[in-house]
Amino acid sequence: MNLFRLLGDLAHLASIFILLHKIQTTRSCRGISFKTQALYVLVFLTRYVDLFFHWVSLYNFVMKIFFIASSCYILYLMKYRFRPTHDPSLDTFKIEYLLGPCFVLALIFNYHFELAEVLWAFSIYLEAVAIFPQLFMLQRTGEAEAITTHYLAALGVYRALYIPNWIYRYFTEGVVDPIAVVAGIVQTGLYLDFFYVYFTKVLQGQKFELPA
């Protein structure tokens, strides 16, 4: 564990609490992509199968359980509790285009050709692109509530912090995880456009609006 990873994980936690706060206080999941949230559930379920056979640490264990539980809870809120506030006609990204290639990539690029390892690699690739339906929705509506942008910013910060974490680990532990690093850099790159608008508009007190 190092400071970058700890802060990254805390940003990830923060993003989930921001999202829950947004849904609970506005009593609405407007502006949130159900598809992206469903993909995160799949990401956590496929990545954390090692909960059953590989103990890392109490921290690791608690966080994994929390990510699985909270992502399922968010899905429940969107699907049942606040269902009428979700507009499927805006959430139209075809996730088949993400699931298929990620699965094929996981079959080809993995550390060991066995179920848990293929699922792990799949989850890494899928997490990298899971934000697409959300960004696509943002692009379609062209604007977002401030709190939704804070949620996305926290998610982006979490990913960005994992990069110095890998650099740090390379120098201190000699460890490199090429699958996680390549996918992680791609994933962080997807946030660059968003970050640009977030820093130049939202943090200056303006509304999040994309140029027409």
Binding site: N60, K64, F67
Partner: peptide, 10 residues
């Protein structure tokens, strides 16, 4: 050697 036991990140 691939970091088989190295899935210690979230």
């Amino acid at each position: 050697e691939a970091p088989k036991d190295n899935h210690d990140e979230l």
